[in-house]
Computed example of a mutant assay.
Amino acid sequence: MKSTTRGTLAAVLLAAAAGAAATTPAAAAETVPVPVPLGGAETALGMELPEVGGELPLPMPGAPDGPRYVEGRLVPDRAIPQLPVGAALPGLGLRTPLPRVLGDEFDHAGLDAPASDVRALGPGATLDLPLTPPDPANFGLPAPKLPAAGLVTPALQAVPGAGLGLAEGL
């Protein structure tokens, strides 16, 4: 093969790959579909098997909620901010044939549990120094006080759902 032919073929393949990457970027998807191939087992066993597929989530970190300055404190309210993470619960799709009692056709039972959004907020921390802000009544000097430390609890929110049904055909 000539070098010009190889160069043209490489340019066409690169353009096709760039076009495919531009239309379906992997980073923009929230879930990745995962089919379970059972075609070989159907052929080997000579029967219809269930169709199984799933969806795996891609966790996406968000922007942390910054520190909050509070009057009367030397250290901000949220010294270690909470980090939000958005993802999805894994999804599942299942269709299995059900033989009819009085015929050769198949009905099917289906279970559909789509991926559902999950919002999580990581733990955070609050701290306070053992000194008060400068006090003009005390000649501008801070007064001692008890130090304070606390944890901000993490939060998790999700609304999963599923559907089960029977229908004709496969």
Results as ranks from 00 to 15, higher is better:
Ala79Val: 14
Thr23His: 08
Lys145His: 04
Ala109Leu: 05
Arg119Glu: 12
Thr23Val: 12
Phe139Ile: 10
Leu94Ala: 06
Gly66Thr: 03
Leu38Met: 06
Ala15His: 06
Val75His: 02
Leu146Pro: 12
Leu170Cys: 04
Val75Ala: 08
Asp117Glu: 14
Val85His: 03
Pro130Gly: 00
Gly62His: 06
Leu164Ala: 07
Pro114Trp: 00
Glu168Gly: 15
Ala20Trp: 01
Leu49Ser: 03
Pro67Asn: 06
Glu51Tyr: 05
Pro90Leu: 02
Gly163Trp: 13
Ala87Gln: 14
Glu42Ile: 03
Leu45Arg: 05
Arg78Pro: 02
Val152Asn: 00
Phe106Val: 04
Ala17Cys: 11
Leu89Gln: 04
Leu94Arg: 02
Ala115Thr: 04
Pro37Gly: 08
Pro130Ile: 09
Gly150Lys: 02
Asp104Lys: 08
Lys145Cys: 00
Pro147Leu: 00
Thr5Trp: 12
Ala17Lys: 13
Pro144Tyr: 01
Asp112Lys: 11
Ala20Thr: 08
Leu56Ala: 10
Ala15Cys: 13
Ala137Ser: 15
Asp117Pro: 07
Leu56Ser: 05
Glu105Asp: 14
Ala18Lys: 04
Ala79Leu: 13
Asp77Ala: 15
Ala15Lys: 07
Pro123Ala: 07
Ala22Thr: 10
Leu13Thr: 12
Ala27Arg: 15
Asp65His: 11
Pro76Thr: 04
Ala115Gln: 01
Leu13Val: 10
Ala149Lys: 05
Val36Gln: 03
Ala16Lys: 11
Thr153His: 10
Ala27Ser: 15
Leu131Val: 07
Leu83Gly: 03
Val34Leu: 09
Lys145Thr: 05
Ala120Gln: 01
Pro144Asn: 04
Ala44Trp: 01
Gly54Asp: 02
Gly62Arg: 03
Pro81Met: 02
Glu55Met: 07
Thr24Gly: 14
Leu129Gln: 03
Gly62Asn: 03
Glu71Ala: 15
Glu51Asp: 11
Ala109Ser: 06
Ala158Tyr: 04
Pro81Trp: 03
Thr153Trp: 13
Ala63Cys: 13
Pro134His: 04
Tyr69Glu: 11
Met1Pro: 09
Thr96Asp: 09
Gly122Thr: 09
Gly169Asn: 09
Pro97Phe: 05
Arg100His: 12
Ala125Tyr: 05
Leu166His: 06
Leu151Cys: 07
Gly53Gln: 06
Gly140Ile: 05
Leu58Asn: 08
Gly163Phe: 14
Pro84Ala: 02
Pro67His: 06
Met60Trp: 15
Leu127Cys: 11
Glu168Asp: 14
Gln157Asn: 15
Leu151Glu: 09
Ala87Leu: 15
Glu42Asn: 01
Leu98Ile: 06
Ala167Phe: 10
Arg100Asp: 13
Pro25Cys: 06
Pro90Trp: 01
Ala15Gln: 04
Leu164Ile: 10
Pro134Val: 12
Asp135Leu: 05
Gly46Tyr: 05
Leu156Met: 09
Gly19Trp: 00
Asp104Thr: 11
Pro35His: 02
Thr153Pro: 10
Leu156Val: 09
Leu49Met: 00
Leu92Phe: 04
Gly103Arg: 00
Thr126Glu: 09
Ala10Cys: 12
Val75Cys: 09
Ala120Glu: 02
Arg95Val: 13
Leu156Asp: 05
Phe106Pro: 04
Pro154Gln: 01
Leu146Cys: 12
Gly54Tyr: 00
Tyr69Ile: 12
Thr43Asn: 12
Asp77Thr: 10
Pro67Phe: 00
Leu45Asp: 08
Gly62Phe: 02
Pro136Gly: 03
Leu94Gly: 10
Asp77Gly: 12
Glu30Ala: 14
Thr24Glu: 15
Ala148Thr: 09
Pro133Trp: 13
